[in-house]
């Protein structure tokens, strides 16, 4: 139980960094709060100061530039991400992930940046960010830097931010031509649920749309961190974009996965689902790479 924290809502990044630095290990950034407030209540995390980032204009901005890609403020709610026309057009896997976190009310508060910083193995926004090649922009006492999202999480609930550092934005490169992405997760219920296993896939096809030029696969809830299925993705390069290739990629992803069994899923179930969800996410990515829609 943690009841005794303070609250500040700065309106600049510099002020937020200062508060976080001064607050030391007890200071925590607050974005949507949908994970953090519950964790504080149950004593899963501790804090003596929450620094609310939602009043900093840059952190609530979405900017898409056809030359430069997407800059997504760390405090943009998932609903705004999932509804954004440019994101819908160019980064469908992120729409899949951001559009399925919690329910409609949660998505109005929860942020993609917060989902990343919560660093849950089952975070639905993280595998999409990874396969879309996202970078995290970090501000801190020593200025700012960028790191790939694929290396952001270092353990369950743990990330690489140092004291006084905060996530400012996510940068996603412009999508390459003939590419498509998809995130699918398995849950018992239709919504308001948490991934038993999730898989994000990104594919780039050759000009004939028959062969895979490049591929990325990332998985949720099958390892202590969101997992890049490197072997499976690399194997796909140069292969025909068909169900046989995808099935083999699913098998290779199963070899990479290191799931546990818990109340949300048994170990054999998770291992099995890695194959199924990887294959299905690849199918979805393929259809989108070909310009088909798979929504609804």
């Amino acid at each position: 139980m943690n009841f005794s924290y303070g609250y500040r809502a700065p309106d600049t990044i510099a002020e937020a960094v200062r508060l976080l630095q001064e607050g030391g290990s007890g200071a925590r950034p607050l974005a949507g709060g949908t994970d953090l407030l519950v964790q504080l209540r149950h004593g899963i995390r501790q804090a003596d100061l929450l620094v609310d980032l939602k009043r900093i204009p840059e952190l609530s901005a979405v900017r898409y530039d056809p030359a430069d890609g997407l800059t997504l403020g760390a405090a943009v709610p998932c609903a705004d991400v999932a509804d954004h026309p440019d994101i819908r057009a160019h980064y469908p896997a992120l729409v899949d992930g951001a559009g399925i976190i919690g329910g409609s009310a949660i998505r109005q508060r929860a942020t993609v940046g917060g989902n990343l910083c919560n660093a849950s193995p089952s975070g639905d926004a993280i595998p999409p960010l990874i396969v879309l090649g996202a970078e995290a922009e970090i501000a801190g006492p020593n200025g700012s830097c960028r790191v790939p999202v694929s290396s952001f999480c270092v353990g369950p609930g743990l990330h690489l931010l140092d004291q006084g550092e905060m996530l400012v934005a996510l940068h996603l490169p412009i999508p390459s031509p003939r590419s498509g992405s998809c995130y699918l997760r398995f849950t018992p219920r239709g919504e308001m649920d948490i991934a038993v296993v999730g898989a994000a896939a990104w594919l780039q096809l050759d000009e004939s749309l028959s062969y895979i030029e490049d591929a990325r696969i990332a998985l949720s809830a099958v390892a202590p961190v969101p997992l890049v299925a490197e072997t499976a993705a690399t194997w796909l390069i140069g292969r025909p974009a068909d169900s046989e290739s995808f099935a083999q990629a699913g098998r290779l992803a199963q070899e990479t996965a290191r799931p546990i069994g818990d109340v949300r899923g048994t170990l054999p179930q998770r291992l099995h689902l890695v194959g199924v969800m990887t294959r299905r996410a690849l199918q979805g990515a393929l259809r989108r790479a070909k310009g088909e829609t798979i929504d609804g």
Binding site: G32, T34, L37, D52, K54, A105, I106, Q108
Partner: peptide, 15 residues
């Protein structure tokens, strides 16, 4: 104007 679970919002955030 946005739907929110008020159990996941701090009172202070409503300022």
């Amino acid at each position: 104007g946005r739907l929110a679970n008020s159990c996941l919002v701090l009172g202070a955030e409503a300022d």
